[in-house]
């Protein structure tokens, strides 16, 4: 009973069409950013290295290399501030969390491209 109530509340916080992507994908995350009263879109590009949480608490982590330094950002999947997530490229991965990428630099960071049939 109580779980049914929780689902009811969480459902209101979920997006109708949540963005679809997989771990290992290279994505463009379009963020809505409010500057004063003006809204603009900022794009964060990188590799999805993991998903976490369930329901309205679901998050995804994106990693990219900026000026030789690794940068990771974690986004709430259902946040209205996430405008859209575009998949640029899919990588072949065999695990759910790509934390092994953190220890890699240069050419070793690349993932083999997955061909979509």
């Amino acid at each position: 009973m109580s779980q049914a109530i929780m689902d009811l509340v969480e459902k209101t916080a979920l997006k109708e069409n949540p963005p679809k992507f997989d771990v290992g994908d290279t994505v463009d995350v379009h963020l809505r950013i409010l500057e004063g009263s003006k809204e603009r879109i900022q794009v964060f590009t990188g590799v999805v290295i993991g998903l976490s949480g369930t329901g309205s608490k679901e998050m995804f982590s994106v990693r990219r290399i900026v000026a030789g330094e690794g940068v990771e950002r974690k986004f709430p999947l259902h946040s209205p501030r996430i405008d859209k997530v575009e998949v640029k490229r899919s990588g072949v991965v065999r695990r759910a969390k790509l934390y092994f990428l953190r220890g890699r630099v240069g050419k070793a960071v690349r993932l083999k491209e997955r061909r979509r049939v």
């Binding site: 929780m6 916080a13 259902h78």
Partner: peptide, 11 residues
């Protein structure tokens, strides 16, 4: 507990 979003996107 759970988490919801306000109109301005605050969790």
């Amino acid at each position: 507990m759970t988490q919801i979003y306000l109109e301005d996107g605050t969790a």
